[in-house]
Computed example of a mutant assay.
Amino acid sequence: MPIVVRIDVELAKRKMSVGEFAERVGLTPANVAVLKNGRAKAVRFSTLEAMCQTLGCQPGDLLEWVED
């Protein structure tokens, strides 16, 4: 998958657990796992906005395009 989700990197920088992150963003821990493992087919802008707001980062800090 050419788009890589870097939630784990941002969570580690902030020493935040997946459970705490999920609660603040309004997702289930299972849905956060789907995002982290690259199995998500789409992300709503409202969810991306909540993730960025929670982590104090930009969308480009969470999403990265890599060549196959």
Rank of each mutant, 00 (worst) to 15 (best):
R14M: 05
A30H: 12
V34R: 14
V43G: 04
M1K: 13
R39L: 10
L55D: 00
E64G: 04
V32K: 07
R39Q: 12
A40T: 03
M51L: 09
R44K: 14
V32P: 04
L27N: 01
F45Y: 09
V9R: 11
R14W: 05
V34M: 14
R24H: 08
Q53S: 15
R6N: 05
M51S: 05
L27A: 02
A22W: 03
A33G: 13
E10I: 07
K13Y: 01
L48W: 01
P2N: 15
C52K: 00
G38L: 11
G38I: 07
G60T: 11
E64W: 08
M16W: 04
L48G: 00
R24E: 11
A42I: 08
R14I: 03
E10D: 06
E20V: 09
R39M: 08
A33P: 11
D61Y: 04
C57Y: 01
T28M: 09
E23A: 09
G60Q: 10
G56K: 08
P2I: 14
G19W: 07
K15F: 06
L11I: 01
T54R: 00
D61C: 00
L55R: 00
K41H: 10
S46C: 10
M16K: 05
L48Q: 00
G56A: 09
V32Q: 07
N31K: 15
D8Q: 14
V66I: 13
E20G: 02
L55G: 00
T54S: 02
R39N: 10
R6A: 05
T47K: 14
R39T: 07
D8E: 15
E10P: 06
E20D: 07
R24S: 09
K15L: 04
A22N: 03
S17N: 05
R14Y: 03
E64S: 08
K41Y: 08
R14G: 01
M1N: 12
P59D: 02
G60N: 09
L63E: 06
P2K: 15
C52Y: 00
G26H: 04
L63H: 04
E49A: 12
E67N: 14
E64R: 12
I7H: 01
R14D: 04
L55I: 00
D61N: 02
E23S: 07
A33D: 12
V32W: 03
G56L: 09
R6C: 04
A50F: 10
V32A: 09
M51Q: 05
L62F: 08
F21M: 05
